[in-house]
């Protein structure tokens, strides 16, 4: 991959305590499925992001295990109901072991 995958995250601005809000995420990644063959006829090895996790102040909020059928530049949205201020941390885990992270400060009113 030419460039390191860059995550983008969108969290709604005004969050009332106890309200469920939708968090939208996108990360650039080719998600090579391992099902394609190259010009030499050999299968191209699989290289995907296989896991996405979101935690709030260390507590699990949402997790996704992705298989080879997830599209390139994977999009993931999920809901989140914070009752206090804190940090929402999102981690994408690559087949090659690398991790890409994004964090977002959450303030509730």
């Amino acid at each position: 991959m030419a460039t390191r995958p860059t995550p983008r995250v969108r969290v709604p601005g005004n969050i009332k305590a106890g309200d469920a809000v939708e968090v939208k995420t996108l990360i650039s990644h080719e998600m090579e499925s391992g099902q394609r063959r190259g010009q030499d006829g050999k299968p191209i090895p699989r290289k995907i992001i296989n896991r996405f996790t979101a935690t709030f102040n260390g507590k699990p909020v949402f997790e996704a295990d992705w298989h080879a059928a997830i599209s390139a530049n994977p999009y993931q949205s999920f809901f989140f109901r914070p009752s206090e201020n804190g940090e929402l941390k999102m981690v994408w885990k690559d087949d090659d072991g690398s991790e890409y992270t994004a964090t977002s400060r959450i303030t509730v009113s």
């Binding site: 309200d19 469920a20 809000v21 709030f56 507590k59 699990p60 909020v61 949402f62 996704a64 992705w66 997830i70 599209s71 994977p74 999009y75 993931q76 949205s77 999920f78 809901f79 989140f80 109901r81 914070p82």
Partner: peptide, 10 residues
């Protein structure tokens, strides 16, 4: 903590 069991991807 999810608040709602709904999520989307492609």
């Amino acid at each position: 903590l999810s608040g709602r069991a709904s999520a989307s991807t492609r």
